[in-house]
Simulated scan of single mutants.
Amino acid sequence: MTGPAVAPGTIHGVGLGPGDADLMSVRAHRLLAGARHIAYFRKEGRAGRARAIVEELLHPDAVEYAMEYPVTTEIPLTDPGYNAALSAFYEGCTAHLRDLARGGADVVVLCEGDPFFYGSFMHLYQRLKDDVPVAVVPAITGMSAAWTATGQPVTWGDDVLSVLMATLPEDDLARHMAAADALVVMKIGRNIEKVRRALRSAGKYDAAWLVEYASMEGQTVQPLAGAEGRVTPYFSIVIVHGQGRRP
């Protein structure tokens, strides 16, 4: 005879917010405090920023599964090997999480920002959602923390807000920048000079703000023009505020 079937566990993609643990949702905090299995992404050789955010919140007996990216910026995004390496990586992570869930374990996957906003968890979600229960906990995004740090509303009235990745080709960046009233540019890092040129081309350079490490230790806020001549960290966001209709 075989024993009763084990009810599958749930994979929880939990948004941690922009970096300050105080900005985490109550639901995220509750799931983390009770988690016996957690998973998180990190660069090889690093502790992982998502893991650092929850350092004081985890149960001491929680089993950790660190998912280490095979590549980050070592090869260009356009290199066929980039997608091939990441696809194999996500497949391997998915298989491990699927096995845990099928064995009855609930797993909390730590997600910086919001899980469905340019997050790595989306690639796991698409591979898991038809096989095991998956739940997503939304969160405050990094861009929200960034524009709040500037002390100015990012949009007014009918302003059109565009969110751009600095990894886009320069001509595409400039075209989208020129068409939008308000801008958020993410994934800056080594792309900063390309972003500067595109903003100048779009006539928005002098209105741009640079926010580094929004809501985290080491946060800085300054006009982008005041940060000439240096490389910015990956966790940088450029903001151009809308100036639209207001009563």
Rank of each mutant, 00 (worst) to 15 (best):
T150Q: 00
T150I: 02
T150F: 01
G151Y: 12
Q152R: 15
P153E: 09
V154N: 04
W156L: 15
V160T: 15
L161A: 13
S162H: 15
S162N: 10
V163K: 01
A166Q: 01
A166H: 01
P169E: 09
D171S: 14
D172E: 15
D172T: 13
L173S: 05
A174G: 06
M177G: 12
A178G: 09
A178I: 03
A179W: 02
A180F: 09
D181G: 05
D181N: 08
M186P: 06
M186D: 03
M186H: 03
K187N: 09
I188H: 01
G189H: 01
R190K: 14
K194Q: 12
K194R: 15
V195H: 03
V195K: 03
L199V: 01
S201F: 00
A202E: 06
K204I: 00
Y205V: 03
A207G: 04
A207D: 15
W209Q: 15
W209G: 07
L210P: 00
L210G: 03
E212H: 02
Y213G: 02
A214T: 04
E217G: 10
E217Q: 15
E217N: 14
G218V: 05
V221W: 07
L224I: 10
A227L: 04
G229D: 05
R230E: 13
T232W: 07
P233L: 00
F235K: 05
I237S: 07
I239Y: 04
